[in-house]
Design a protein around this nucleic acid. Structure first.
Lengths: 244, 244
DNA sequence: GTTACAAGAATAATCGATTATTTGTCAAGC
DNA sequence: GCTTGACAAATAATCGATTATTCTTGTAAC
């Protein structure tokens, strides 16, 4: 079952990114890329499902050209797959895929954090603390979907901010891609964390270690944090059996 | 009736690409993505230059839709940049960019090699030896441009084969992207390796270590290999002063 | 001489229609 | 019953033309 992503605002994606005032003056193609990304990550567009261009065209109220262009941009993000003359489909999910995402996050995101600790400036430190506070204050109630959505956005920003001091744009791009892919699993399959975790506590320890420039400690905390989330999700998927 | 100039369409692609049997059954958009990628990596399209859609449309003998779609796919590859209403441009080159590419290759490619050594099967081992042989046999003469092009293709395949046993599609995709970016620097700025290197020797040691499953040794050899190439290129760029 | 601003030119973005390919269906032949 | 092939429907891909935006140039005011 797929919703019509049309209805919701889908106001511009990376809201908390870093002071981009997008003006809403984007082209249709760009807007579509954002909306499609959001629709896929949020699960509105079901994993593995084929994207019928004509229907999509109608539900988004656009013409074919910008639609195809938007979709093309999502290919390298790993959110969309494409086959000549057979069109586009939402990338499928699988246990193997989730395992890879988790292990790569442990590798890359941790590396990026170490680099940030090594070369990040005071501005970066401040941003980390700011985002930590924001995240700790964000409500997360499985009964209120809007809080979940908001929490996800803030959570994502927190993780990106953590590694934003590394001074390596390409690395950040890769990490952002992995975070996108990972978030899809969580937003689709997980509405609450397992009871034995204090996620806020985990985030605090990572952030505190980072601004204290305790590289080894912060890195290890982040690695465990990512690993726990992965294990958690894997358990869910295995139990519910929705995914092979 | 459709009047397409069937005389010389898109088939001037160099077959030496990398063992892909293109079947010729691709769509124009896909063919364009490949051709544009090759044109950028080879330096045919100058780094940093603006891509005029109308001129590109003419020189490629295609319409706008597939051209834009092809370009859109290169964005996430880091080869093309895009700005709303201002169109596409070839990503610029810079010392900082090259440094990042090198350092990320040291991180990711080495990780992928270790994983390949850990879980790669005999098929992978065999492929590594095959590509090593092919590479050792490939001529590289600065006076014969076609040998340079061929060597680049084989060299690229060698590096990809080395890490192809890791069982991590996403990781391979990232490494391939980095290799693309790196190759552009070499193909644009470097026609011969510095005299004090025996590159064939380096490749042999990496490959031998890999199939012997000596993880630490092979990994360190690869890391140094990548690092030397980076240093080498940086020197060239700095001396020639073409890049800041 | 410099700035501001208004055409006009150049370019990018989008649309609607057309063409090409794949997929589904069904009857004929084995 | 199963395959094969022809036809039709569905879908993807492309094109040419149109619209929107940005860039350029020339002129008037100060």
């Amino acid at each position: 079952m797929k919703h019509q992503p049309e209805a919701h605002n889908l106001s511009n994606e990376q809201a908390g990114n870093s002071g981009f005032s997008d003006d809403g003056k984007n082209t249709i193609g760009s807007q579509l890329a954002s909306r499609l990304r959001e629709a896929i990550i949020s699960g509105d567009l079901e994993a593995g499902s084929k994207i019928n261009l004509d229907r999509a065209r109608q539900s988004f109220n656009v013409s074919l050209s910008p639609l195809r262009e938007g979709l093309a941009r999502l290919i390298s993000d790993g959110l969309v797959e494409f086959e000549d003359n057979r069109g586009y489909r939402v990338s499928p999910v699988s246990l193997a895929n989730l395992e890879e995402i988790t292990s790569l996050r442990e590798e890359f995101e941790v590396f990026a954090l170490k680099e940030s600790i090594r070369v990040g400036d005071v501005e970066w430190e401040s941003n980390v603390m700011r985002m930590l506070h924001k995240l700790n204050r964000a409500e997360r109630d499985a009964n209120k979907p809007e809080t979940l959505e908001h929490w996800e956005a803030v959570h994502r920003d927190f993780h990106l901010t953590l590694i934003s001091g590394c001074g390596k744009p390409l690395l950040l791009h890769f990490c952002k891609t992995l975070l996108n892919l990972n978030d899809r699993y969580r937003r689709t399959f997980l509405t609450q964390t397992s009871g034995d975790r204090n996620v806020n506590q985990e985030h605090s320890e990572i952030a505190q270690g980072a601004v204290a420039r305790d590289s080894d400690y912060a890195a290890e905390q982040l690695r465990q944090h990512i690993h726990r989330t992965g294990t958690n999700l894997l358990g869910h998927l295995t139990r519910t059996g929705v995914v092979r």
